[in-house]
Amino acid sequence: MSALAGFLDRYQERESLLHRLDARAKLPAALGFIVAVTFTREGEWLTLALLFAPIPLLVALSRLGAALVLRRSLLALPFVATAIPLVFTRPGDPVFELPLTGWTASAEGIRAVATIMARAWIAVLTAVILVATTPAVELLRALRSLRVPALLISTISFAYRYLYVVGDEAQRMIRARDSRSATIPGARAGRSVAWRAGVAGRMVGSLFVRSLERSERVYAAMQARGYHGELRFLHNPPLPRTDLALGAALVAYGALVQAAAYLR
């Protein structure tokens, strides 16, 4: 097993309804639902609550456990920092003043940031559930049903396959470097930032040469098996109607909630 797999893989093996659903239904459903969430306007709390409502149901159906989904959903949290300034810059009714600074927070600002955070959180939760219940190869296969150009899908599939090979190589190089990055008493270790960046750059250069040579070997091996630039895929089994219906139901629900919000 690739040493990186333990760090990178997001799929969680379980026996559940969501795991069994076809990726060709799940991926468009998650994407459609996230798009619906993106449309939420500031301060539409009821809409946000209604859009959040399916999430606990999906978590229960997936048997992933709330703790795992919650923990992973915090990934996007640091990005909130880009929105926080709105609390103080949006004009409106003053709510509180930040001590020592003289900056006042406005109710409108708080409302805007809260909406952004809620939107982001519901979207991330949806994506976390999708990725934890669907093996990566099936997600990549589902891209084909979304009409992504075949060359791009093949490139992405190759990238996924060799990510672990090249990534392991990178990780071994980093370990070998760190292992020689020693400190002795009485001397300042590590020299300058520029020197360290240069070392990282040489490692990147060396990784590039090795990756390029690897791609040449991969190409030769493909040719040896009869490859002439045309990529063939195994034919996909038909998409079960019930899976399609369940996926469509989620998207329809999101669209309906938004339609109600915009028409109100």
Binding site: E169, R172, S179, R180, I184
Partner: peptide, 17 residues
């Protein structure tokens, strides 16, 4: 970092090093 001045590790693939 101090220990690394005392224990040198040699990785199996010298290209990594």
């Amino acid at each position: 970092p101090l220990i690394r001045a005392r224990v040198g590790l040699l990785f199996s693939n010298p290209d990594d090093q």
